[in-house]
Design a protein around this nucleic acid. Sequence first.
DNA 1: AAGCCAATCAACCGCATGCAG
DNA 2: GCTGCATGCGGTTGATTGGCT
Length: 210
Amino acid sequence: MVRAPCCEKMGLKKGPWTQEEDQILISFIQKYGHENWRALPKQAGLLRCGKSCRLRWINYLRPDIKRGNFSEEEEETIIKLHQLLGNRWSAIASRLPGRTDNEIKNFWHTHLKKRLKQHNDLPSTTTNVSQKMEHHIYSNYYQDSQNIVDYHPNYCHDEEDLQENNSSSHDTQSNNKENVQSTNAHGDMNRFNNDMVFWYNVFMNSGNNV
DNA sequence: AAGCCAATCAACCGCATGCAG
DNA sequence: GCTGCATGCGGTTGATTGGCT
């Protein structure tokens, strides 16, 4: 719809945050919360746009943020969730306490994507469950470039959608899904649905075991 | 020591969505 | 139902850092 005014045009500051700005933002939010991001910088005396403040708070200053390297468990969770949800980083982040969508997105692009690409090259040497899972996923969905389009998990919304996975969709993205899938053979669709249900179950059951 | 290059990650941009009037 | 505002989200950029020659 209508875009918020650009920071530059408003004479607002861009670029890296200073410690001083961080402090101002933290103490303001601790005192008054963040009901209205747009009004916040003005009230707090920051020369930033609300969007920038929100991002800084969510991705860096929030007290419950977990910083540092991702554990193996977290890595595997991200991989599994990415298979289920696609590039829905905020949905993935919501299942990883203390991690932000931005952090996960960066981690995916810099580490996991690369790592999983390598997995493509070692077909039968996998030993543990997660390795087998990853291999299964990639041999099914990623090896064939055609499948990347046809089966891309972006088209699946989240667990709720998966549970009602055969039903029709209710937004534009899902309409695209229908359009894309209508060009596929029914057999492919069934395989897709079966696999998605399978991985959904794997994921739901893996919580305590990974 | 200097220069180059790749990797990393914080931050920005633009679009989508939800909601109130 | 339409319009406009606020926020959320995903993609992308660009500055910084670290490793290599």
